[in-house]
Simulated assay, not measured.
Amino acid sequence: MNKIEKVQRWLADNDQDIALISDPKTIQYLTTFYSDPAERVLMLVVFKESDPFLFGPALETEAIKDTGWTSPVYGYLDHENPWKMIADHIKAKNTNHTKFAIEKAQLSVERLESLQQLFPTSDFSANLTPFIEQMRLIKSNDEIEKLKVAGKWDDFALQKGFEAVQAGKTEDQVAAELQYALMQNGIMELSFPSLVQSAAHAAEPHGATSEKKIENNKLVLFDLGTVWQGYISDASRTIAVGKPDEKSMDIYKVCLEAQLTAQDAVKPGITAEELDKLRET
Rank of each mutant, 00 (worst) to 15 (best):
E215A: 14
D155W: 12
A176F: 05
A164C: 05
E113R: 10
R136T: 11
E177G: 03
E189Y: 06
N185M: 05
Q173S: 12
Q197T: 02
A126T: 09
A157V: 06
K148P: 05
L128V: 06
T121Y: 09
P130Y: 07
I138P: 00
E133N: 12
I144A: 13
T238M: 08
S140K: 07
Q166H: 11
Q117T: 08
G230M: 08
Y231T: 02
P193N: 10
G207D: 05
E215V: 06
M188H: 08
L221C: 09
I132W: 00
L224C: 07
V196R: 01
A203G: 14
Q159V: 11
D223N: 10
A208K: 14
M183Q: 12
K160M: 11
D172S: 12
L190Y: 01
D155Y: 12
W228T: 04
M188F: 12
Q184D: 12
K218M: 11
E177W: 04
E211G: 13
V241K: 05
D172T: 11
L115G: 01
S236H: 11
Q184Y: 04
T129Q: 10
L137Y: 09
W153K: 02
T238W: 01
K160P: 03
D234M: 04
N141L: 15
A181I: 00
S122K: 03
A181V: 02
I138M: 14
Q134C: 00
A176R: 09
I187M: 10
E145I: 06
M135K: 06
R237G: 07
E143D: 14
A200D: 15
V174R: 02
K146D: 13
L221D: 01
T121I: 10
K160S: 08
L178C: 09
P120C: 08
K212I: 14
D234P: 03
L219G: 07
Q197N: 01
E211R: 13
T129I: 10
L182C: 07
R237I: 05
G242N: 01
I138K: 15
